[in-house]
């Protein structure tokens, strides 16, 4: 479903030219759970942002579900992102002014679901992640693990086919991190396609497949059978 060929991303600043990604070719199939590992600065986040249509690329081609995304305008990309892709970030990135309910509501609003449908989905997700009692809490009133679970609930509320997680456990203690990983594994089992960026080999080992990035290049491709 995700098909990248020869992707390059170059950042040109006044002083330096950084090849964040060079000639990246990669296919992710429906139902995969792929870890992207590599040292800091190797281009993992850049890859994830391109995959999630948040960022353009300079060379190569990218087909998402067979559709060439290069020709899409901002509205079309936003719509695709909204419908097909769920994001999870290292810093949780909940909106601090909004309570848990309203945070999970955000992607559903852009989807244009009616109120009843939104409410049903939000409650369903929060229940699934054991957050029903926190529905009116604000992010600052939650622990890191709870915040990340809200973020996952938010990413999943619109039923995306595709979950992109950037160091989802980077800000969590090991117990919470393990809990989040359990969740991701559960999602994978129920059919969600997941790409998870991490620099922690131990976490990467829990994903059935992984790719290794270094200096913007794929240096290893580990197709360990699940």
């Amino acid at each position: 479903m995700l098909d990248m060929k020869g992707i390059a991303r170059i950042y040109q600043t006044d002083l330096v030219r950084t090849h964040a990604l060079r000639d990246l070719t990669l296919t992710v199939n429906e139902g995969d759970f792929t870890a992207v590992v590599g040292p800091s600065g190797s281009g993992k986040t850049t890859f994830l942002n391109i995959a999630g249509l948040l960022e353009d690329f300079d060379e190569g081609s990218y087909l998402l579900d067979g559709e060439n995304v290069a020709g899409l305008n901002d509205r079309q990309r936003s719509k695709l992102r909204n419908e097909k892709i769920g994001f999870i970030f290292q810093g949780f990135n909940l909106i601090p002014d909004l309570n848990v309910f309203d945070n999970v509501d955000v992607p559903l609003r852009y989807r244009g679901f009616p109120a009843a449908e939104r409410k049903r989905r939000i409650e369903e997700q929060l229940e699934r992640f054991g957050l029903t009692g926190r529905i009116r809490h604000f992010p600052s009133q939650l622990s890191g693990g709870q915040q990340q679970r809200v973020a996952i609930a938010r990413a999943l509320a619109g039923d995306p086919r595709f979950l992109l997680a950037d160091e989802p456990t980077g800000n969590l203690d090991s117990a919470s991190a393990s809990g989040v990983l359990d969740l991701l594994e559960g999602l994978h089992t129920s059919g969600t396609t997941i790409i998870m960026v991490t620099h922690d080999p131990a976490l990467a080992a829990r994903a059935p497949s992984s790719i290794h990035l270094q200096d913007g290049r794929v240096v290893g491709n580990d197709e360990a059978a699940a």
């Binding site: 999630g52 948040l54 901002d74 509205r75 936003s78 719509k79 992102r81 909204n82 419908e83 994001f87 970030f89 990135n93 909940l94 909106i95 601090p96 002014d97 955000v106 992607p107 852009y110 989807r111 938010r154 619109g158």
Partner: peptide
């Protein structure tokens, strides 16, 4: 800006 980044990631277009 960070809220804007999040909203974009969750599907908000520039227009919205």
């Amino acid at each position: 800006s960070s809220e804007i980044g999040v909203r974009r990631a969750l599907g908000a277009s520039r227009g919205s």
